[in-house]
């Protein structure tokens, strides 16, 4: 087990370098840099000043030099400051001499995205397990077919379109739910409980939209896994013993079906921290997706590289944890690894 762990951890180093190399070069291959943003196309801004800015950001140096400069800083866990004119720290807050705190950009955005996606993931899993089991038990009968169609519609509907329709219907026509943002105008003056209710209301639409896409794959996964397990000998044995069907399904079959889901959790980690640009733009939520998208369009290299690095580190760890968790849960594999 320990050997396996060490091997996996060692593999992560070349992978991280690979990821950062690929990202760095793709990013710099794309034409333009921060000094070419739309606002700089202003006759009052002179080319000399832009060259000066470029030199300040080392953008005039060869690519390899820029990469090694970046790598040197990253080893010290220094993600630098954004190139944009606000110069905020990319990762974590810094304090200036007067005690003013500049919050990190990822520090601001990540919790929001995590909150939405974690709630979304929980709902997806709960619903998927339920739907998958119902489907499997009623294989090829109408509840199965209906569920299949519904989860596929959820997958197939263009999210931003549905989001706008729902925003209009629940927000404008009926004023049931807020339209965008995460807080109402008077949020600061509310009591604690009211604040939670307010946040909850704001989360309903974004979370529902973010769930739709994932429902199909996971509920089908549960359904098919369940069908597989139900054919296994030990289920036949259990049936022969005369155990009630409910008990067979929930005690024996479901437990074995859920095992592989652990891997899926691991694989969904990039999605958890990645956020969705489209959803965040529509709902005016300042999460990771929007941050990243804006940074790419502005060619704000430190932010792009910061997000990618943090993202891939978390992803690789997520996969590792998922694999270990899977091994832990499945005795067959646990033995396999220690051999």
């Amino acid at each position: 087990m320990l050997n396996y762990l060490i091997k996996r951890l060692l593999w992560m180093i070349p992978m991280l370098i690979g990821i950062s190399l690929i990202s760095f070069f793709i990013m710099h291959l794309a034409p333009g840099d921060i000094t070419a943003s739309e606002s700089a196309f202003n006759p009052k801004a002179s080319e000399e000043s832009r060259q000066k800015l470029r030199a300040l950001y080392n953008l005039d140096k060869p690519l390899m030099t820029q990469y090694s400069l970046w790598l040197k800083r990253i080893v010290k866990l220094d993600f630098g400051n954004s190139f944009a004119s606000h110069q905020r720290p990319v990762l974590w807050e810094t304090k200036d001499a007067k005690g003013n705190i500049s919050k990190g950009m990822i520090q601001d955005a990540l919790p929001i995205t995590l909150m939405i996606n974690l709630i979304g993931l929980l709902i997806i899993f709960a619903l998927s397990i339920f739907l998958g089991v119902v489907s499997a038990v009623n294989q090829n009968r109408w509840p199965d077919r209906l569920i299949t169609i519904i989860v596929f519609i959820g997958f197939a509907v263009p999210g931003f379109w549905l989001a706008l329709l729902l925003m209009y219907w629940t927000g404008v026509t009926h004023s049931w739910l807020p339209i965008s943002g995460l807080h109402s105008a008077g949020f600061e003056k509310m009591g604690h409980f009211e604040q939670y209710i307010d946040l909850f209301k704001h989360l309903i639409l974004p979370v529902s939209i973010s769930c739709l896409g994932g429902l199909a794959s996971i509920s089908l996964y549960v359904r098919n896994g369940m069908l597989d397990v139900l054919q296994q000998d030990y289920i036949t044995t259990a049936r022969a013993k005369g155990l009630p069907e409910n008990k067979i399904i929930y005690r024996h079959a479901l437990r074995n079906t859920l095992l592989p889901l652990i891997t899926i959790i691991g694989l969904s980690i990039p999605g958890l921290i990645g956020g969705s640009v489209i959803g965040e733009s529509i709902f005016a939520i300042s999460g990771m997706g929007k941050l990243f998208f804006d940074a790419v369009l502005m060619r704000d290299f430190p932010v792009v590289m910061g997000i990618l690095t943090i993202g891939s580190v978390l992803t690789l760890f997520g996969n590792l944890i998922a694999d270990i968790g899977y091994a832990w849960a499945d005795p067959r594999i646990r033995r396999g690894i220690s051999n």
Partner: peptide, 22 residues
């Protein structure tokens, strides 16, 4: 397979965006 892992851990969306910008 490690290359596959690398590609999977870079958000697809980023790759698309950067390459399309290019």
């Amino acid at each position: 397979m490690r290359f596959v892992d690398i590609m999977l851990s870079i958000p697809t969306f980023f790759l698309i965006l950067a390459v399309i910008a290019f």
